[in-house]
Write a protein that binds this DNA or RNA. Structure first.
Length: 108
DNA sequence: ACATTGACAATTA
DNA sequence: TTAATTGCCAATG
């Protein structure tokens, strides 16, 4: 199992209306390479099977170089799924992020 | 095998 | 508080 395979698996496990962060993913994978996560998603082979639009950075800010149609597209998708935005490009981490508070961190 | 790149994060100024 | 620098990991040239 390669690194990106795990990243993809985690992304696919994020339910609609919810989001996760690069940090969470990297942490779950037991790696500190947050960039590596984004790197993997960057070359995501299939946008349909990999909802990378639900992955945001630690402040809930949408990814910059979203390989799809820009952050605008990503934002639209998130809104469609019911994700709450607190700012132009910031999602409500309090409600939408899969927190580890319930230590329900994305499964491995 | 080495150097560079990249959808990030934490620290320092 | 905002801006710039450094650190990390994996992939790619």
């Amino acid at each position: 199992m390669t690194f990106q395979s795990r990243v993809y698996s985690l992304c696919k496990q994020v339910p609609a209306g919810k989001i996760t962060t690069y940090k969470a993913i990297a942490d779950t994978l037991g790696s500190k390479g947050y960039r590596a996560v984004g790197n993997a998603l960057n070359k995501n082979p299939d946008l349909k099977t990999i909802p990378c639009h639900r992955v945001v950075n630690k402040v809930g800010r949408l990814a910059l170089g979203y390989a799809f149609g820009g952050p605008g597209e990503q934002k639209m998708r998130l809104l469609s799924e019911g994700v709450v935005f607190v700012d132009e490009n910031h999602v409500d981490l309090q409600k939408c992020q899969i927190t580890q508070c319930g230590h329900m961190m994305i499964s491995k």
